[in-house]
Amino acid sequence: MTPSLTISGIPFYDAPSEIEGSPYWVDLWTDINGYKIGLQVKPSTYKSANISIYMGKARSSEEKGHKEFLRDFGGKVFIVMPVNGVVSKEIEKKIVAERNLLLKLSPKK
């Protein structure tokens, strides 16, 4: 299976339909030591778009879903805006730090 996105050697795959969208708002995920890290992929226009589009119920629902993902799968969800398959260095560092943290935990069954 070919990953949809690779970040610092970490392959991310399409999340199953029950994970994608509500309730978790995760498009891609990866398994690290039995835990999952999720990615919510946004278009590059996300930051420059009218911010009110992303405010209110939709944004609140996404944040709630990301907290539920952390509770249910043990890893964080990161919002990424890849440009030509590359995410920002800042987000990349956060994802690598999360991977390293999960690798230090006892494997999740």
Score class of each variant (00 low, 15 high):
4 S>C: 01
92 E>Y: 02
97 A>H: 05
40 Q>D: 13
9 G>F: 05
23 P>S: 08
33 N>W: 01
43 P>F: 07
4 S>G: 13
34 G>E: 02
8 S>A: 10
65 G>H: 01
97 A>T: 15
51 I>L: 02
73 F>Y: 14
4 S>H: 09
3 P>L: 01
32 I>C: 05
86 V>S: 02
18 E>F: 14
69 F>D: 02
11 P>W: 04
32 I>T: 12
104 K>F: 00
29 W>R: 06
60 S>C: 01
93 K>F: 05
22 S>D: 12
102 L>I: 01
11 P>K: 08
69 F>M: 04
40 Q>A: 13
23 P>G: 08
77 V>E: 12
63 E>L: 08
76 K>L: 14
79 I>K: 06
75 G>Y: 00
98 E>Q: 02
94 K>R: 01
29 W>S: 03
18 E>R: 14
53 I>P: 01
3 P>K: 02
80 V>K: 01
107 P>I: 15
62 E>D: 02
41 V>A: 13
104 K>S: 11
58 A>C: 06
44 S>F: 14
106 S>T: 14
105 L>P: 06
101 L>M: 15
11 P>G: 13
10 I>Y: 03
88 S>F: 02
95 I>R: 04
12 F>P: 09
71 R>T: 12
14 D>Q: 10
22 S>G: 11
25 W>A: 06
64 K>M: 00
98 E>S: 04
97 A>K: 13
74 G>Q: 04
15 A>W: 07
83 V>P: 00
83 V>R: 01
7 I>D: 02
37 I>E: 00
76 K>A: 12
50 N>S: 13
1 M>T: 09
79 I>L: 10
12 F>C: 13
78 F>T: 02
108 K>T: 05
13 Y>V: 00
11 P>A: 03
79 I>G: 09
54 Y>E: 08
97 A>E: 14
73 F>M: 03
30 T>R: 07
101 L>K: 06
45 T>D: 00
103 L>D: 12
17 S>D: 13
26 V>S: 01
19 I>T: 05
96 V>H: 00
99 R>W: 11
81 M>T: 15
44 S>L: 13
15 A>S: 15
67 K>S: 07
90 E>G: 10
78 F>R: 09
65 G>C: 07
43 P>M: 03
29 W>C: 07
28 L>G: 04
5 L>Y: 05
58 A>H: 04
103 L>Y: 12
64 K>V: 08
105 L>T: 15
97 A>Q: 10
72 D>Y: 07
61 S>H: 09
100 N>T: 06
65 G>F: 10
18 E>S: 10
61 S>Q: 11
88 S>E: 05
23 P>Y: 02
42 K>Q: 12
71 R>F: 06
27 D>Y: 11
89 K>N: 08
84 N>F: 09
3 P>T: 01
93 K>C: 14
105 L>S: 06
31 D>Q: 08
107 P>M: 02
46 Y>N: 08
2 T>Y: 03
33 N>I: 03
94 K>Y: 11
39 L>T: 09
86 V>C: 03
109 K>Y: 05
18 E>M: 10
5 L>V: 14
22 S>T: 09
106 S>Q: 11
101 L>G: 02
103 L>Q: 15
100 N>I: 15
23 P>Q: 00
17 S>M: 10
56 G>Q: 04
4 S>Q: 12
73 F>H: 10
78 F>V: 06
58 A>R: 09
94 K>P: 00
64 K>R: 12
36 K>C: 10
53 I>K: 03
75 G>Q: 07
81 M>K: 10
